[in-house]
């Protein structure tokens, strides 16, 4: 017992004060919101689009980038001969609408997720129980959802927790492209959640299929099957990105963040 107490003292208090305090420091090479500097693009160059593994970049006059497909990988940055592609440090990426994840090249600002309407906020704002369903996820999204439950993040302080049964849940948090072999299980789990309910799609796979876009074995994400209330892009999204999305949805992000 005494050893456990001493260990507790030496390990210290490690929970982040985010969102009231500063966000935990991200590494200098962190790949957050991508940017295309159109003015630097070479005429007729399609290098970034050709390098993109998921077809997230649409070249041409209205060049755009789809954060729902983006793996936040370095391939486009490496392929660009003009240095027009880069990733910024902004971890805030979640949206309410799928279409909002598509950014045009003219420096369009991401329309971050708005809070639920008042009635849902009253229901879920201070107590949100989620049933996580991995439907073809590679265990990276799952792992960084799990991390939110550790002492470093302490998701419980917001009243958000993961529950064992869909019957106890207010919604689903889905990862993976929704494989054909998980389709029925996902539908049954959704049906077992009492109304009203939320669906949150975490990661490129759950939003668009990610690296598995177009596979006959998958469904190109959760939105093909269920109404999705929050999209959290990334491969996998950083825990901070996921937490940011959840807090925005619940209307619990302090003003100005």
């Amino acid at each position: 017992m005494i050893k456990a107490i001493l260990a507790r003292i030496s390990q210290g208090h490690r929970t982040t004060r985010f969102p009231r305090g500063p966000a935990p420091a991200l590494p200098d090479r962190f790949r957050g919101a991508p940017r295309i500097d159109a003015s630097a693009c070479l005429d007729g160059c399609r290098s970034c689009a050709e390098a993109c593994p998921t077809g997230a970049i649409e070249p041409g006059g209205t060049m755009s980038i789809d954060l729902g497909k983006c793996l936040f990988c370095p391939d486009c940055v490496r392929a660009c001969p003009a240095g027009a592609m880069s990733y910024g440090a902004d971890y805030r990426l979640s949206t309410r609408m799928r279409a909002d994840l598509v950014l045009a090249q003219d420096g369009q600002i991401l329309r971050l997720a708005e809070a639920l309407e008042k009635k849902s906020r009253r229901l879920f704002g201070h107590s949100l129980k989620l049933r996580q369903v991995s439907a073809g996820g590679c265990n990276a999204c799952e792992a960084d959802v799990n991390v939110l439950g550790t002492v470093g993040w302490d998701l419980g302080r917001f009243g958000i927790s993961m529950v064992a049964s869909p019957r106890h849940a207010d919604g689903l948090l889905i990862t993976g492209p929704v494989t054909k072999n998980m389709e029925l299980a996902l539908r049954k789990t959704y049906d077992a959640v009492p109304e009203p309910k939320l669906v949150i799609a975490v990661g490129a796979c759950a939003i668009s299929g990610g690296p598995y876009i177009g596979h006959a074995e998958g469904n190109d994400g959760a939105a093909k099957l269920l109404p999705v209330d929050l999209f959290v892009p990334g491969c996998p999204p950083h825990p901070l990105t996921i937490l940011d999305g959840l807090l925005r949805l619940l209307g619990r992000m302090p003003k100005g963040r």
Partner: peptide, 30 residues
């Protein structure tokens, strides 16, 4: 098992291509 089957080996045929490395990276994300 088999619920997580995404068809990676089949998709690798005819490669390597621009997705191949990303299949490898997400075969088991951890």
């Amino acid at each position: 098992l088999g619920y997580q089957h995404r068809g990676v080996e089949r998709a690798m045929l005819g490669g390597p291509d621009k997705r191949s490395l990303h299949y490898a990276e997400t075969l088991a994300g951890d």
